[in-house]
């Protein structure tokens, strides 16, 4: 195969046409919203793609979560005990009998069947958000693996309002992504959907049918 490599590269080098010298890149004006507006934009864009967004002060997000889980009749909610939300979640339900939480610390292969067919929902943290496009940014970790946000029919994500950036460009630059890309970085904007039949939108074709986001703010 090294032949193919050197042949292709040799052809590209030999055939390289004269290209105009790079000019100053065209500037694209970026949004400069404040925190309040970022939350508003995030919510507006997310809701436009049928995600469910709740904005709530820090002290009440667990109560809200309990209510949502009850309303949606989620009887098994996958969570990461060692993830950033682990402790808070563990204490959210008073009696273990009422708690829908389930935790799996094995590798995917060891409990794939259950994940695929017997889990109602999963809850994860979010690393960042993007206001302009209404986007959750996840950098899955060993504690919160990437399949949590993909396989169960409902994905509940907790997002700190202060982690919302105006734009993707802003986020990449400020957080220096180019120096530390993770195994998998995910931008999620809404529940799974398709328009492959007559351009009619249908939700939940392969990934989550519902995406629920709780944006946690410091203000009341």
């Amino acid at each position: 195969m090294s032949d193919a490599r050197s042949n292709i590269l040799a052809r590209l080098r030999a055939g390289k046409p004269d290209m105009p010298a790079a000019s100053e890149p065209t500037q694209i004006p970026l949004a400069g919203w404040d925190l309040h507006e970022r939350v508003r934009q995030f919510r507006k864009k997310m809701e436009s793609v049928r995600a469910e967004v709740h904005v709530t002060p820090r002290e009440s997000w667990l109560a809200l979560l309990r209510r949502l889980v009850a309303e949606k009749q989620i009887s098994t909610l996958l969570y990461a005990p060692d993830g950033p939300l682990g402790e808070a979640l563990f204490q959210a339900w008073e009696s273990p009998g009422e708690s829908p939480l389930i935790a799996r610390s094995e590798t995917l292969e060891e409990w794939k069947e259950e994940l695929f067919f017997n889990v109602d929902g999963a809850i994860t943290s979010s690393r960042w958000g993007i206001a302009e496009t209404g986007t959750l940014v996840l950098w899955p970790t060993p504690e919160e693996p990437r399949s949590f946000s993909l396989v169960p029919p409902v994905h509940i994500a907790i997002l700190e309002a202060g982690d919302i950036y105006n734009t993707f460009a802003d986020l990449i630059e400020k957080e220096k992504w180019n120096q530390r890309m993770p195994t998998n970085a995910l931008l999620i904007s809404g529940p799974s959907k398709t328009a492959d039949i007559e351009q009619t939108l249908a939700y939940g074709v392969h990934g989550p049918i519902e995406l629920v986001i709780i944006v946690v703010t410091e203000e009341n």
């Binding site: 693996p145 195994t183 529940p191 799974s192």
Partner: peptide, 19 residues
């Protein structure tokens, strides 16, 4: 305005990762 998923893959499963 954006697709539901933008999936950026930079490596296979690393030691300790579950999936």
């Amino acid at each position: 305005h954006i697709t539901t998923y933008f999936n950026m893959i930079t490596s296979p499963r690393k030691p300790g990762e579950k999936d």
